[in-house]
Design a protein around this nucleic acid. Structure first.
Lengths: 245, 245
DNA sequence: GCGGCATCAGACACCGATGTTGATCAGCCG
DNA sequence: CGGCTGATCAACATCGGTGTCTGATGCCGC
């Protein structure tokens, strides 16, 4: 078709006029570079180049490098929220979920972790970028995705399907960061989609096993059992509320 | 002692001639800056300034910025190895450990995790630096500290104190990264040494609880139990399924 | 068809970081 | 004590990134 795209010479086919599109293109490029170099290593020049956008245009969408980084981390978190929970963070209210839907969202076996792992396995850049962000942030728990996950798990802990005495914060740290680092580790071993899926399955299976049975055989650690049961016995929920306000 | 240190005017009291000392001073400064900005954010200028050393001197010890970063990550890993396992990585052989010593080193309840958490809680810069390094590295599992931990845990898994069917890699990812990120999270909440110790205790207790009992009540997930027990071994699962009541 | 605006190209001053080089001075050894 | 080695330092040239500005160009809605 005879249209734009000056063929031979390095002529640049000027980008079609689409502010939102370019913005997200920039964010996406910034995301992948963020994953590679971390927040401190991000340069507007590289981002613009990768996004196929003039540097000046980038500066038109984000006044300063710092703002670009900020916007990018927020965007990454948003992507993760949508992929994991299927809704945006900026609560457009959205009708209250039905009870069974509630249970599905809350129960750790319902697929939230599976979703996250699979998504992270297919988008390791986002996972890595999120980890960088969380690691660099002075307040990791302020991240929207973090808060979302934590809240969901907190609700699960209240149900009678959960073991008593769970420490929500510790669990959140373990699961979130483990779930996102696993693809980083696995990346070195899996090339094909099949291998990746297998590794994702391996992770979720081990999480399931650990969640059900733990790592140690209780009968081998009577003293530890006694101490822990003393901690959680009297009134499980009260014990937790003491520290996880 | 009354010596050196020209007092008033900005006169620089030329550093005493001490190659090894300056080298480790540089490494230490690089470590704390690495924790703050990540590998890509590290600048030789800042390192030299923080270490109280001329930039040129730094370049004499490490030919290039990249080499400095590399040496620093190695140094951090070394520090962690010594803190956690009490010996250096560059195996000077060192006599074989006695059987009970072996058990102490291998058993997850013996204090390895406690050691690491406490150390990480008191040296969050090192923890953060290590996480940055692991996150940025294409082969996280090549880190000496990582390998050391993994090997120890692998030996534990072979003992009959361990649950059957443990996935060593998944466990290593979870524990290592969780243990080091916990201080980063906790840092935002704890100021005094007492608070820090309390948070460290809270983490190890939850790890212990999780290792013993897991997160979910098996009786609520019969299908999952069936699938997992089929995966591992037919026999031992029944024993622990009764523990939770 | 026209005006507004998104996009691009290029240039500028400024800054900080990188490596390099030659001078300088501390500590050791004869 | 005097010289030598090399650890430490100050200064230089260079490069790349930032943030800003100007003018040109084309796309889209009115």
């Amino acid at each position: 078709m005879a249209l734009k795209k000056a063929k031979s010479a390095g002529a640049k086919p000027r980008r079609r006029r689409d502010p939102d599109g370019t913005r997200t293109a920039i964010l996406q490029a910034a995301g992948t570079l963020l994953a590679k170099d971390g927040p401190q290593g991000l340069s507007v020049s590289q981002v613009a180049q990768l996004a196929g956008v003039n540097r000046g245009t980038a500066y038109q969408h984000f006044q300063t490098r710092e703002q670009l980084v900020e916007a990018t981390t927020g965007w990454v978190s948003e992507q993760l929220c949508q992929a994991a929970f299927g809704k945006t963070t900026g609560g457009k209210s959205s009708r209250k979920p039905s009870p069974e839907e509630q249970a599905r969202l809350v129960d750790p076996r319902s697929g939230v972790i599976e979703h996250i792992v699979e998504f992270a396995m297919e988008n390791p850049e986002l996972a890595r970028a999120w980890l960088f962000h969380v690691l660099a942030s002075p307040q990791p728990a302020h991240d929207p995705f973090w808060k979302m996950y934590r809240q969901r798990f907190e609700e699960y802990v209240k149900t009678d399907s959960a073991q008593p005495g769970i420490d929500v914060e510790v669990h959140t740290v373990l699961m979130l960061v483990g779930t996102f680092l696993w693809p980083v580790w696995a990346r070195a071993h899996a090339r094909t989609a099949k291998e990746r899926q297998q590794l994702a399955l391996r992770f979720t299976e081990e999480i399931a096993r650990l969640s059900l049975y733990g790592t140690m055989r209780p009968e081998k650690y009577p003293k530890l059992v006694a101490r822990l049961s003393k901690r959680t016995q009297p009134k499980p929920v009260a014990a937790k509320s003491g520290r996880a306000k």
